[in-house]
Write a protein that binds this DNA or RNA. Structure first.
Length: 832
DNA sequence: GCGGATCAC
DNA sequence: TATGGTGATCCGC
């Protein structure tokens, strides 16, 4: 690896770009020459390789440019820069926080280790997890051959013909991940997961308490753990009788974490950080038969580097003092630092920087060649500084879905594919109740050239149709630009970003609340103060209009025929203009969910008020918590809920013409009861909730009626939420709830009613769609384009999810897999 | 805001 | 035969 930029760009026989790096644990002391030759031979001439060369040249150009810039730097500039750097170093040093003890813990060759644990035949053989197209990870036997993560299986096979490739089994990894996270939580309830197999913990508080613990609390018994764990008992039966607890997964692995005599039945851990971490690793090993490595340091950056130091099955600690930190940092190769990747390494190397102390020495130069954020970051690294505060579940910034397939050049197929991706994305968005303003289309052509196209709206979108409307335009532009040559694609992806922040949501809620509680004189209410007017504050208008737009879209999609004869816009006019449009309608009360034998809005409102009042009284009168379940609207007489505005009335208007509504409503009400109380009713089966979707006679003919139900549920929930917010009850009540979707019957990992509402909305629509499809003859062999085009290998490659939302921990990949539901795809295609 | 790049896992 | 998917961030327009 001694080649510099210049020689690399000449493209001599040896290509460092494609070559193995020995950064990864278990890759030391390999026959790199040979490995690189094999990799090169297997890659040379491929489109992929050509593209890698191109990218490499771009980096080289970047470096050349940087070097030219460097030549222009004067001594004075450098001196001035040095002063600036010195000042920053001083400031940074002053702010150095050595008060926390951060642990980074990382399972050893996680996926491979799980597979080896569960299949004894794999133990002593080189193996990897993934497919012929892509490997996720390899065991340490395989690493000796140069087989590593992110390497295509077919190349790995060339390096190691006896390599066994095991397909990914995410469910299993997720299960193990849940087990280890239980342990993490005992040491730091606020631990920060990085991926299925990795997490940061701040054990400072744990250690404070730990020092007072009696020995008994730090004592762990072997047999108890082993017998209570299925995995380990399997191994015991399988002849693992060498006195170690877990299988020796790696032959170069240090002795097992238990350094007591085999006959000893318990082990007492000390009170130090190292002992606590050893204990944690011991417990992980006892529980899962898998080993973990850990780093202990004053901040996350150092902890992360440390966990790699004694991998596998080891740990390393940097004491919490400045000197120890600087000693550790001194000769640390910059590439070991998280955030410094291949390219940055190469650029810095061109400046003669390979270690962290060199990074420090060249601070002035770096400040003149890199952006402020970059050189600040470099400087922090060089001082061994990093985050001392673990980020709690940050807000998601984007969500995307993308797929690789064998070449698709036909525009029709490309559009079709694009829609499928939008559909998938919309489903994922629903799950989290998100809406975004920016849609980005990602395309990779058969030459591996990547391109993204984005479009931003002034409002947020979330449905398949909305997203597709944007994505298809972006795609069209690309197709047109390419014409008459076809776009030859190997990958397509759709991303959505520009979500409402929590802050935005609060703002919105406030404005809605303001809308609901504004002085009557300011709002064109009816004489009773009910919001039958279409007017209102700006924010609330857009909110409800969007809601209506969504419903219109659903209407069109779900029942175009009905839509033709009964136009939503027309109905709007009737409503706005007065009671004409209501003459032949009956209204359904959103509280008692009973049809009201009136078309007079005034009467109807009075009924609602009565309903609300009565349930409020109930709520106050009773101490019986189960009774409270029926108290849907949380309000009092003084704060009448007057939430019925235009869109609601529209929906209510639909629902009088058949008895579908009442059937559905009762179900909804039942479910709502549970939602509000947080009664998860685990025993509630799919059958129990299915009537909501399947049981209604004529359901498929009355799609808009389903919208009614949906709207009522949604608005009731919103009503409740807003009321609760208003009464400042939300945090005390809502956050403890387990929300169970009444439609899909799945527990939703959110306590945010807004999020939950959106999920329910979506679920309800899906029910209608499915029902509709059942009714309509639809080619059963209308298989998804992606299913046809995507190879199994492509589907099963590594994809560790890095969701920042701890409410739905990084398990999303697996959750995303069922996306390839052919029925669902055909449903959406049907409506195209 | 857009598009390309880099990085992590 | 065959080189991934998801999310974040940064930089230079």
């Amino acid at each position: 690896m001694e080649n510099n930029v210049q020689t690399a760009s000449t493209g001599g026989g040896f290509q460092p770009w494609m070559a193995v790096n020995d950064n990864k644990a278990g890759m030391e002391g390999l026959d790199k020459e040979k490995i690189n030759r094999i990799i090169l031979e297997a890659s040379k001439g491929s489109k992929f390789y050509e593209n890698e060369l191109k990218k490499e040249q771009q980096v080289n150009q970047r470096i050349e440019k940087m070097m030219q810039q460097k030549e222009l730097i004067t001594v004075q500039q450098l001196r001035k820069a040095q002063l600036l750097v010195d000042k920053l170093v001083n400031d940074l040093e002053c702010s150095r926080d050595l008060g926390r003890i951060i642990v980074h813990i990382d399972m050893d060759a996680f996926y491979a280790a799980v597979e080896m644990r569960d299949n004894l035949d794999l133990r002593d053989k080189p193996m990897a997890v993934g497919s012929m197209s892509m490997l996720s990870t390899s065991n340490y036997h395989a690493r000796k051959f140069g087989v590593r993560a992110a390497m295509p299986g077919f190349i790995a096979k060339k390096l190691c013909p006896s390599l066994i490739i095991v397909p990914l089994n995410f469910d299993k990894y997720k299960a193990v991940s849940a087990e280890i996270r239980e342990i993490f939580a005992e040491y730091d309830p606020n631990f920060s997961p990085v991926s299925l197999d990795e997490a940061y913990l701040d054990i400072t508080d744990h250690l404070e308490q730990r020092c007072c613990w009696p020995e008994s609390r730090r004592t762990y018994y072997l047999e108890k753990e082993i017998t209570s764990t299925e995995h380990t008992s399997d191994l015991q039966l399988s002849g693992n009788t060498d006195g170690t607890i877990s299988p020796v997964l790696f032959e170069d692995s240090p002795p097992p974490s238990l350094n007591t005599a085999p006959e000893q039945k318990h082990i007492v851990f000390g009170i130090s950080a190292e002992e606590a971490v050893r204990e944690m690793r011991f417990r992980i090993e006892q529980k899962t038969s898998l080993t973990a490595s850990a780093g202990i340091a004053p901040n996350t950056m150092l902890a992360k580097v440390c966990s790699d130091k004694n991998k596998p099955n080891g740990q390393y600690k940097i004491p919490n003092n400045q000197q120890a930190v600087m000693d550790f940092i001194k000769d640390l190769p910059i590439r070991k630092v998280p955030g410094i990747g291949k390219v940055t390494e190469k650029m810095l190397k061109a400046l003669g920087i390979t270690t962290c102390s060199e990074l420090r020495q060249q601070g002035a130069l770096l400040s003149l060649l890199f952006s402020e954020t970059s050189w600040h970051h470099f400087l922090q690294i060089s001082l061994g500084l990093g985050s001392t505060h673990l980020e709690r579940d940050g807000e998601r910034k984007s969500m995307s879905t993308e797929r690789t397939f064998s070449e698709i050049s036909d525009p029709e197929e490309q559009y079709s594919l694009c829609r499928e991706l939008c559909s998938d994305l919309a489903k994922d968005l629903k799950k989290e109740g998100l809406r975004g303003r920016t849609v980005t289309l990602k395309l990779k052509n058969v030459n591996f050239a990547l391109k993204t196209k984005a479009s931003t709206l002034s409002y947020a979108v979330s449905t398949e149709d909305e997203i597709f409307a944007l994505a298809k335009d972006l795609l069209k532009t690309e197709i047109d630009n390419s014409s008459p040559q076809p776009l030859r694609l190997r990958l397509m992806g759709v991303r959505i970003s520009g979500f409402q922040s929590q802050e935005d949501k609060k703002q919105q809620q406030k404005s809605i609340l303001g809308f609901l509680h504004t002085d009557k004189q300011d709002i064109p209410f009816t004489s009773q103060g009910h919001m039958f007017s279409t007017q209102g504050t700006k924010a609330s208008c857009s909110f409800f209009n969007r809601k209506k737009a969504e419903l219109m879209l659903n209407d069109q999609k779900q029942n175009p025929q009905e839509h033709q004869t009964c136009n939503v816009g027309d109905r709007d006019v009737h409503l706005i203009n007065g009671s004409n449009g209501l003459l032949n309608c009956m209204l359904t009360c959103p509280v008692c969910l009973m049809k009201q034998n009136t078309s007079d809005l005034k009467t109807f409102n009075e009924h609602i008020d009565k309903c609300l009042s009565s349930v409020s009284e109930d709520q106050e009168d009773t101490n019986d918590k189960t009774q409270k379940a029926s108290n849907l609207p949380i309000c009092d007489d003084k704060n009448e809920i007057k939430i019925f505005c235009e869109s609601d009335i529209n929906e209510s208007v639909h629902c009088n013409s058949s008895n579908v509504m009442s059937t559905s409503c009762h179900n909804v009400k039942d479910k709502m009861t549970r939602i509000v109380m947080g009664n998860t009713e685990e025993e509630s089966t799919a059958e129990e909730s299915s009537p909501l979707i399947h049981n209604s006679v004529g359901y498929s003919r009355s799609c808009s009626k389903e919208s009614t139900t949906q709207s009522n549920v949604t608005d009731l929930c919103e009503m409740i939420q807003h009321k609760q917010d208003y009464k400042q009850k939300s945090s005390s009540l809502l956050t403890r709830m387990h929300l169970l979707c009444p439609v899909c019957n799945l527990k939703q990992e959110t306590s945010d009613l807004d999020v939950f509402n959106r999920h329910v909305d979506v679920c309800l629509n899906e029910g209608v769609l499915k029902e509709l499809v059942k009714e309509r003859p639809c080619s059963s062999d209308a298989v998804s384009l992606l299913d046809r085009k995507t190879t199994a290998a492509h589907l099963d490659v590594n994809s560790r999810n890095k969701s920042k939302r701890s409410a739905s921990p990084p398990l999303q990949h697996a959750a995303k897999k069922p996306k390839h539901n052919k029925n669902e795809n055909t449903i959406y295609r049907f409506f195209r």
